[in-house]
Amino acid sequence: MGRKAQKNDSLPGSLDMLILRTLSLRDLHGYGIVQSIQQSSDNELLVEEGSLYPALQRLELNGWIEGVWGVTSNNRRARIYKITAAGRKQLAVETRKYAKLTLAIARVMGAE
């Protein structure tokens, strides 16, 4: 972790998408989600840890994820989140939106 990683604030709302994507691979608790995102982005994306919990609440309220009490790999009690069917649908929607957006940005950047 020697160099400064990019904070995830370039694309507002993309945190939700990243969480959904992470949870679509496996069920995780809060800290696990942060680590997972960090690892799978090769430490390029650094989730602002405090913002994770409001985001989780929002996702749960919308019915996209569901938290249940469980035990972490370190044997500690934690809320383990899993993605719901509605969440998978939402992930698909967001993925399409994101693809469109990055494509558009790439076009703009390419035309320069």
């Binding site: 809060g30 370190n74 500690r76």
Partner: peptide
């Protein structure tokens, strides 16, 4: 209350 516990756990693991 659950939220508070989750955050505590997060800090401990970090």
């Amino acid at each position: 209350e659950a939220l508070r516990e989750e955050m505590e756990l997060h800090l401990a693991e970090k």
